[in-house]
Design a protein around this nucleic acid. Sequence first.
DNA 1: AGCACCATCACGCAGCGTCATCGTAA
DNA 2: ATTACGATGACGCTGCGTGATGGTGC
Lengths: 183, 183
Amino acid sequence: VTERAASDRQSDKSEGRERSDGLLTTGDMARLTGNTLRTVRFYEEAGILRPDRRSAGGHRLFSQRERERLQFISDMRTAGLSLDEIRVLLDVKVKAENGEQAAKAALAALDRRITDLEDRIAALSRLKGELCGAREVLRDCKSCRNEVCFPDSCDDCDVMLGRVDVPQSVRVLWAVDRRGRSE
Amino acid sequence: VTERAASDRQSDKSEGRERSDGLLTTGDMARLTGNTLRTVRFYEEAGILRPDRRSAGGHRLFSQRERERLQFISDMRTAGLSLDEIRVLLDVKVKAENGEQAAKAALAALDRRITDLEDRIAALSRLKGELCGAREVLRDCKSCRNEVCFPDSCDDCDVMLGRVDVPQSVRVLWAVDRRGRSE
DNA sequence: AGCACCATCACGCAGCGTCATCGTAA
DNA sequence: ATTACGATGACGCTGCGTGATGGTGC
C-alpha cells in the first residue's frame, strides 16, 4: 500500500548520477527545467516533445536537444504563450520552403511575441505602481489612532480625506462593508 | 430560432444610456471593466462579487462600489493572482479585529504581491532579452544566401559559427530536424 | 409588439495536479 | 532483494467560452 504517494514533484536535489549514453530520463528532464513528470509526459502527448527512444522497459529517454526544446517551451509558457502558439513557433523552420522564408516567418513571429511581452510588462508595471501607491496610504493607516471609527468610518478619516489621489485599490480594500446583510 | 447567438462578448460600443437609480446591469459591469457577462456571473457564483439587489424580473443590479470591486479583481487577475488569493485580499479588512491589525495585514499582503510582481516583471524582461537576441541573429539569416545548406546545415553556417553567443532560443528554433523518422 | 438585453442550465476546454497501481533500473 | 524511480490510467480542478432556450425591460 502506498502511504504518501510521492506527488510527482521534482525539487532540485543536487546532482543525480549521469547516464553513460548521455540520454535523459523523464525525471532528468523535469528536474533540469523545473517542471514535473506529469508536465513532460503531457507535452509528449500534446506532440511538442518527443523522446529519442524508449528503454527496453518502456522508460522514456530524451536527447540533450530535446532538453533545450523543453526549456524553450517552459520559457514561452512563462511568457504567456499557449501550447498552440508555441507549436507554431517550433514549426516555422520545418514548414518553410527555403531559408529566406523561414527567417522571415520566424522574425515576424518573434516580433509579435516581443511587442506582446512589452505590453504585458507595461501592464504589470502599471499595476505595481498602483499597489505601491496603496501601500503608501496604508502606511499612514497603520499609525492611525482613531480606533473608534475603524471599520465603518475610514472613508471619512483625515488620512483619506487629506489625500488628493486615493488609489482605486485602496478604495476597494478599505471600502465600508455593506455586504452580508439581508440574507 | 437563434441564428448567431451573440456570443456574450462585450465590446466598448460607446455610451449606453444610464439608469436613473445609478445601478448597473450585468452588461454594464462587463462593458465598463472589459469582461464578459459570463465572467461577472462566474464571479458572483464564486462569491467575490455580489449584486446590490435583483430587479423584479431577476436581473442583477450592481452598485458603483461593486464596479470598482470588479475592476480591482480584473486588475489582480491580470497581475496573475488566483481568485482565492484575491479573496484573501478583499477579506483583510473584514476579518481584522481593529484598524492596526487590518492595516498590518493589508500591508503584508500588498508587499508580497509587489515583490511577486517584480519577480514576474524581471522574468518577462529576461525573456524579452532572449527573444531580442534571437531576432538579431535571424536578421542575419534573412540575408543569408547559402540556399544550398538550408534546412540541414544551418548549424555549420558562418552566420552561426561567427557568433560568440547564440541564444538558446535560436538553437532550438533553428535546430536541425531529426524528428519524424522511424515511425 | 418588438428588439435588445438578461437568466439559467449544461457541456467543453487547456494545462496540468493528484492519487492509485504496478512495472523498471542498477 | 531492496529502494528509488518511471509508466499508465483516471479523475479533479480553475477560470472561464460557447451554445441553447426562454424570460425581461422599456
